[in-house]
Each structure stands twice: as C-alpha cells, then as structure tokens.
Amino acid sequence: MLLIRCPYCQEERPEIEFSYAGEAHIARPLNPDDLSDESWAEYLFIRSNRRGLHYERWLHAHGCAQFFNALRDTVSDKFETTYKIGEARPQVKK
C-alpha cells in the first residue's frame, strides 16, 4: 500500500484513502468541435503509459476530496513529488 503525500492536506496518508485518476496534464480541449476525429480520439484515449517517471492524477477521496498531480516512477512505484492542480509540472531530473 503506497504512502501518498496529499499536497492539500500536507500529510502522508495510506493509498486506501486515495483514488487513482489517470495520466495528468491532459487538458480537455477548449473547443472540441474544432478538433478532428483523430485529435479528439488522442485526447480521449491515447496515454503515454510511461515506464519510468509518470505524471498522473490522484484524488484524495477519503480525505479532502481534492484532485492533485503526482510524479511517480512506474517501475519502483516511488513518488518523486505531488503537487496541486494548476501548479507547473515539475521537471524530470535526468
């Protein structure tokens, strides 16, 4: 069970309080009607599914009920950092 730091609560809490919410930084297009079917499908379905550092979203469902972003290594499952919605994505340290 992962230990996850909620950037709103500023606390590390166990994974069962949280709900995974998919890849992060996939913004909904502002004008969907202007998109081609291909671009719309890209938004809906295409995911980086990165092996390694992965930007993703979590919901502190049984806590503050806030969505937040995280940078986590999908090979070690270790969190690099978590940050609030709207904050710039942290750069991946090479």
């Binding site: 994974e15 993703e56 999908t74 499952d77």
Partner: peptide
Amino acid sequence: DQYVSYSQRGALH
C-alpha cells in the same frame, strides 16, 4: 491495482 505500474508487484489490501 489502481495505478499504472511496471513493477510486477501489488499491494496487500
């Protein structure tokens, strides 16, 4: 498990 992972490892719960 709920999150993307390549670790071939899951949680006890």
